[in-house]
Design a protein around this nucleic acid. Structure first.
Length: 703
DNA sequence: GTTTACGCATCCCCG
DNA sequence: ATGCGTAAAC
């Protein structure tokens, strides 16, 4: 018996209701930003359970595991706790789980190691050197480029040649070597029981494809499949869904093509449009009513996406009336931008808006560096999402490498890392040692018998002792404590400049390990669900404190706040300088901007600094983002400082003000620094420095 | 022959 | 702040 009845009619609009009530067959839900997409999924989970479907027969695939947990928590609030038993996670975590169960069908043991992006790059780099492709003067692509090429090839199901032709034509001359390196990389991973993120998807797909029996089992295990954020899935993931649901076809996917922002990772928003072809007879439901933002914010959002080259389907509307127009602020520089944001935040807090209802969003993690200093200075607490992860820090990778060896003693990648930490051991010696290890039946024991030179004998013996001990310690936490006793002196020697800071990260890792009883689970989670690097994020006492959110736009997907600031809206920052070469990339930047502005419920601030530092070029003039320039001016208002407003009337119409960007026939682009008198201004020009100009003579134009 | 120290460029988004 | 290439030191 259920505690309460769900009032579907009261809680849902007709389109949402239809999605919730359609339980069988394939369904595509096109859900605009803020249209109650999550609500719809939550109610549908509850509905299925209410109808008597056992929760563990339902599979909810989301973009992050946190999102899945949150949805299931909400479902359990409207129905009952059994909803928590629904299977939920990301494609990668599901594939990982399934490969632990079925990987033997492809010749994998159950203790394979999951490589994160950094590990994959390290492996590629190692092989790149081994194949003699690293010699200088060859201009062979670097490991991160290679990793991207390989990953796209796997995720999009296209050959390396196709990827190179389309996206890296300048590397086509290296095609044979890249192909050789790729197959070498695949062989290496298989030989050492390693899987990177792409292998997780690819291998699970292969199991499904090659084993009809597994497909039948899976279709029985998961009778209903739901996929959130479908616009950010790729071809391989779509195929996985198709094969998993072959026995029943009960698949609901939810997405918004306008919010597709992961093409750089191989996602393809056309997946949404191809869904009806992949799943014949699919019902299509559109959610177009927005419950989140005020009309002025929606008007701006609609204007942003109206300029998209390929757009489908929907136009958002709201019944919310009133609301302030979005505000644009042109800052003199980053410091001015930070000051502006901090001041508005303090004002809003005075008005009673909690900090947790405000967020600052940006394109790239480093765009908020200056703001972070300003917030710290003013004692405004914040949490930052996106950017460097704990797991990406060198010292954390060191620890993880030791633990991986315990689990998979043939993980030579980890051995390499661990051996290089020994004093007196460099690449050559490490390689010699590894040659012994790879032929051994028990690499750890072999280590004890390696004929070491006196220079590193002691280190090698200490390493042997710690690895031997670690194997016998059952608890994850105690393993870490033993390992730290060994590693702390190493840390102090290798990172002598800043080891105290790094020691705090080790503490965080220890805290994280508390909830794990199984080492392999702990390591897999570290790779599949990397925790944020911020120490504050991990400390329980900070969880209750009211704090502001700083986030990359990618990490802000699916979230909303009362007030949103989008900063660094300058050309080269947003759109990113890396993304302006092709129209497709630019379109993705535009969708990213759309995602950013649709996070706001009541207030939206858009700021752009007119000068900034560019590495290698120093301080330069930054043009406002084309996404701002394209906006019809009636959709926003320009922010004016109150004191400037007072002096406004004395300044003649069209007069220059500090911060104006101008054009001079000889000096080019410049920025007004000071208005000295009615016809005399001081201007900073790129490459020419500061000049004082008489307006009677100089032909300055505002740009 | 190897390791290590140091200076230099580079730095977007992510499971 | 990390990752590289080169030069000095063991």
């Amino acid at each position: 018996m259920r505690g309460r009845r769900i009032e579907y009619l009261k809680d849902l609009n007709p389109a949402q209701l239809e999605a919730v009530r359609t339980l069988f067959g394939p369904v595509l839900v096109i859900a605009g930003a803020g249209s109650g997409k999550t609500r719809t999924l939550v109610y549908r989970v509850a509905r299925l359970v209410e109808e008597g479907v056992p929760p563990e027969r339902i599979l909810l695939l989301t973009f992050t595991r946190k999102a899945a947990r949150e949805m299931l928590r909400r479902a359990s609030l409207i129905l009952d706790a059994s909803c928590e038993r629904v299977a939920g996670g990301t494609f990668h975590s599901l594939s990982h789980q399934m490969l632990r169960r079925y990987g033997h069908l492809l010749g994998y043991g159950s203790n394979f190691t999951v490589l994160d992006r950094g590990d994959a790059e390290d492996a590629i780099n190692l092989l790149r050197g081994a194949l003699g492709l690293a010699e200088k003067g060859r201009r062979f692509p670097k490991k991160d480029t290679l990793a991207s090429i390989f990953s796209k090839s796997v995720n999009q199901g296209r050959t390396l040649e196709e990827i190179l032709e389309k996206e890296y034509p300048h590397l086509l001359e290296h095609l044979p070597d890249i192909q050789r390196l790729f197959s070498e990389y695949q062989r290496y991973k298989r030989e050492h029981q390693l899987m990177d993120y792409d292998d997780l998807l690819l291998n699970w797909y292969r199991v499904l494809l090659e084993h009809p029996g597994v497909r039948r089992e899976i279709s029985r295990e998961f009778e209903f499949i739901m996929v959130d954020e479908y616009q950010d899935t790729n071809h391989l993931q779509a195929e996985i869904v198709r094969l998993m649901s072959e026995g029943h076809g009960n698949v609901m996917v939810v997405g918004d093509d306008s919010q597709s922002i992961y093409a750089f990772r191989g996602a393809n928003f056309r997946n949404i449009l191809q869904f009806p072809r992949l799943f014949p007879g699919a019902k299509i439901i559109k959610l177009e009513e927005n419950y989140r933002s005020t009309q002025p914010i929606l008007d701006l959002a609609n204007a942003v996406i109206a300029r998209a080259r390929e757009k489908y389907t929907k136009c958002l509307f709201t019944r919310k009336s009133g609301g302030r127009k979005p505000v644009v602020y042109r800052a003199r520089d980053e410091a001015d931008q930070s000051r502006f944001v901090a001041e508005r935040i303090l004002e809003l807090r005075e008005e009673g808006i909690p900090l947790s209802e405000m967020a600052v969003l940006f394109r790239a993690a480093f765009h908020s560096f200056d703001l972070e200093l300003e917030l710290a200075k003013r004692d405004i607490p914040f949490v930052k999402y996106g950017g460097l992860k704990l797991i990406e820090a060198a010292h954390i990778k060191d620890i993880v490498a030791h633990l991986r060896i315990i689990l998979n003693p043939y993980d030579l990648l980890s051995w390499h890392r661990v051996l290089l930490l020994l004093e007196g051991v460099g690449p050559r010696t490490a390689e010699k040692i590894m040659n012994h290890l790879r032929q051994s039946t028990d690499p750890v024991e072999t280590l004890a018998r390696f004929p070491s030179r006196p220079s590193f004998r002691e280190g090698l013996e200490a390493l042997y002792r710690v690895l031997r001990d670690l194997r016998d310690i059952p608890s994850v936490e105690e393993k870490l404590e033993r390992l730290y006793r060994y590693y702390t002196p190493v840390l102090e020697r290798v990172y002598h400049d800043d080891y105290p800071k790094r020691e705090r990260d080790l503490e965080s890792l220890l805290t994280l390990s508390h909830k794990y009883r199984d080492l392999s689970e702990f390591l897999a989670d570290l790779a599949l669900e990397p925790p944020e690097s911020s120490v504050a994020d991990l400390e329980p006492e900070n969880e209750t404190e009211d704090h502001l959110v700083l986030s990359t736009i990618h990490s802000a997907k699916g979230l909303e706040w009362h007030t949103v600031f989008v900063i660094a809206l300058s050309e080269g920052r947003f759109p990113s300088a890396y993304a302006v070469s092709s129209e497709e990339e630019l379109e993705e930047e535009r969708r990213l901007f759309y995602v950013a502005v649709t996070r706001a419920r009541e207030n939206l601030y858009l700021t752009h600094p007119v000068t900034g530092y560019v590495p290698g070029e120093g301080r330069v003039i930054l043009k406002p983002s084309r996404f701002l320039e394209e906006l019809p001016s009636h959709l926003y208002e320009i922010y004016r400082e109150p004191r400037e407003e007072a002096s406004d009337e004395e300044v003649p119409e069209g007069a220059f003000r500090p911060g104006d960007v101008v054009w001079h026939p000889r000096f080019g682009e410049g920025e007004i620094r000071d208005v000295l008198s009615q016809d005399k201004v001081r201007v900073y020009f790129l490459g020419h420095g500061e000049k004082t100009l008489h307006l009677k003579f100089a032909r300055l134009e505002r740009i």
